[in-house]
Amino acid sequence: MAEARTSTPRERYRTQVRAEIKEHAWEQIATAGASALSLNAISKRMGMSGPALYRYFDGRDELITELIRDAYRSQADTFRAAAEAGADLAGLAHALRTWALEDPQRYFLIFGTPVPGYRAPDDITEIAAEIMTVIVDACAALPSEPTPDGAAEAFDTHLETHRQWARDHPASPAALRRALSFWTRMHGVLSLELAGQFTGMGFDPALLYAAELEGLLGP
């Protein structure tokens, strides 16, 4: 039996044009940032009229949403593939660094300065939750940490009843705290590195990243 056609020539053309629009959008973002994204400028680059381009995207926010969705999906797929290949928390950290360095503008679109007036739809929040679930899974698989005291103990107590961000994952509060520490410390180093804040300081950011990871994993 012949295979059913999954798309028409018109649908394939539409997909190609949308992909080209997104390519030009990434070029704009790399040059001037997401807040300066202009559909009119993209239409001129593509030799289209403004109204013609709006047949493919309703407006700037829809285009930004597509780019953010693609970025989160790329990171989620990277983490999922690493986890399925047996990566532990250290492996996820290395996967994150590689992913970020491959395309800094993609990284900054989702972890940099928020676009004024923009709010991501719920489905993107769900993709971000997938990423956090992989991290929490990896933290839950690590040996238990020593009994916390002071601020760490207070935060663990707080996390016992404030774990909705982890989709109520059954991991211990200590594992949840480690997941949050991973998220903040790894992204802290990456964000400063990619923003050029270490330029001229004379050290290798990769070694700082590795040292922060080692400190996070403990003895």
Rank of each mutant, 00 (worst) to 15 (best):
Y72G: 03
R73M: 12
R73A: 15
D77Y: 02
R80Q: 10
A85K: 14
A87C: 07
A90L: 11
A90H: 12
A90P: 07
A90T: 05
G91A: 06
L92C: 06
A93Y: 06
A95D: 05
L96A: 12
T98S: 13
E102F: 02
Q105K: 11
R106K: 15
R106Q: 14
L109H: 12
L109R: 12
L109F: 13
F111H: 15
G112Y: 10
P114V: 08
G117Q: 09
R119Q: 14
R119Y: 09
A120F: 01
P121C: 05
P121E: 04
D122Y: 05
D123F: 14
I127N: 03
A128D: 11
E130D: 15
E130Y: 00
I131L: 07
I131Y: 05
M132T: 14
A138D: 01
C139Y: 04
A140K: 10
A140R: 12
A141N: 02
P143T: 10
T147R: 10
D149Y: 04
G150M: 03
E153Y: 01
A154S: 10
T157I: 04
L159T: 07
H162Y: 03
W165C: 00
A166W: 05
A166V: 09
R167T: 09
H169S: 12
S172W: 02
P173A: 11
A174G: 14
A175S: 15
L176H: 13
L176I: 14
L176S: 02
A179T: 10
A179P: 01
A179E: 11
S181V: 00
S181M: 13
S181I: 00
S181Y: 01
F182V: 06
W183Y: 15
T184W: 11
H187P: 10
G188T: 02
V189M: 07
L190W: 07
L190F: 08
L190Q: 07
E193W: 14
E193A: 06
L194F: 02
A195V: 03
Q197W: 08
T199K: 14
G200Y: 09
G200L: 07
G200K: 09
P205K: 01
P205M: 01
P205D: 01
P205R: 01
P205H: 00
L207Q: 11
L208A: 09
Y209K: 02
Y209V: 02
Y209F: 15
Y209I: 01
A210N: 04
A211G: 01
E212L: 00
